[in-house]
């Protein structure tokens, strides 16, 4: 097993005289691990991350960084072990991305320009280098903020919602960059996220904070199999947990059924995916007929449709006549 870089024992954190937000946290952060931290909105993920750096006084317990309590490190020493990017608003004025990234360089470096270029290349964001930071899009900013964190070259990295503004391909790119980074440098990355759908696809282990503020370390699949996803993300009155997809989705009143004839399972899957949103159920008294799936088209009662879109328009008008 790799080395423990941070040992958190029996930690409770919170603000002011109000009771602790998070209680009894016991976690070991290992070198070379990239682990997402999931939890409902407002449960205290950011508070937790801030407390690990010593920015918030803890109520109880201990935080050890390489065997020594975090309080015994000076701010400067902490910054040389832990880099973090919080989702606070940044006042960057006329700063370019490059200048912003260079703020992360802690010590005098022989060739800072080269170092900066290296990280812009690593994240493949060279085109952002000379742009003014506050004129970037939200997604672009996340990349520049990540470069700023990585250039600090620390053993531990805390990221707060780095994927919040990224599109799907951006999310995949960030996850692959971060997991490569842990392999290359042996760094430990803790990343808070709201994006359950992405995380469950890519992460083997996750930290979760449930609605009661209890910490757990597990695989996302466990949450699905034990049907406990709703202990983390509360189910609304019109939402439900779908255990075959591992997602929370909208409850839709079943209003019709139809038969599907097909030998193409993928097309069948996505056709059902579309039908489900219209109120399709396996058994219902409203029977609309048979959809036959062919190579090039869908056929419903002798009418041919090239796309699911056209077919859904037709079904919608059929439903309106009911």
């Amino acid at each position: 097993m790799s080395k423990v870089c941070m040992k958190i024992t029996d930690l409770s954190v919170g603000y002011g005289d109000n009771g602790p937000i998070l209680k009894n946290i016991n976690i070991d952060l290992f070198e070379g691990q990239f682990i997402p931290l999931l939890g409902p909105n407002g449960i205290g993920k950011t508070t937790f991350v801030k407390s690990l750096f010593g920015l918030i006084d803890k109520k109880h317990g201990s935080i050890e960084l390489y065997g020594k309590p975090i309080e015994e490190y000076s701010m400067n020493e902490r910054a040389s072990y832990i880099a973090m990017s919080l989702s606070e608003s940044l006042n960057t004025g006329l700063m370019t991305s490059e200048e912003f990234v260079s703020l992360g360089i802690l010590a005098r470096t022989a060739d800072p320009e080269n170092l900066i270029s290296k990280y812009f290349k690593k994240l493949d964001i060279n085109e952002l280098k000379y742009k003014q930071f506050n004129e970037l899009s939200d997604g672009e900013r996340e990349w520049v903020k990540l470069a700023r964190v990585l250039i600090q070259q620390t053993k531990i990295i805390f990221l707060d919602e780095p994927m919040g503004h990224l599109d799907i391909s951006g999310k995949v790119k960030m996850i692959s960059i971060l997991s490569n980074h842990t392999k290359e440098t042996g760094a430990s990355i803790l990343m808070s996220s709201h994006d359950w759908s992405t995380i469950r696809k890519f992460s083997s282990y996750i930290y979760v904070i449930d609605q009661k503020g209890v910490f757990k370390f597990l695989s996302p699949e466990d949450l699905i199999l034990t049907k406990k996803l709703n202990t983390i993300y509360p189910l609304q009155t019109n939402s439900m947990f779908e255990d075959n997809q591992g997602e929370i989705s909208l409850k839709i009143e079943p209003i019709f059924t139809l038969d599907i004839e097909s030998n193409n399972p993928i097309k069948t899957f996505w056709l059902k995916h579309a039908l489900a949103k219209m109120g399709y159920a396996e058994n219902h008294s409203n029977y609309l007929g048979v959809i036959k799936i062919y190579e090039e088209e869908f056929v419903l009662t002798n009418n041919r449709y090239k796309t699911i879109y056209e077919l859904m328009r037709e079904i919608k008008s059929l439903l309106a006549q009911l």
Partner: peptide
Amino acid sequence: LNLIFVGEVFSKSLGIN
């Protein structure tokens, strides 16, 4: 100064009080 210009928590995270 460069760091506090950007933000207070930001400067703390980079080792400046």
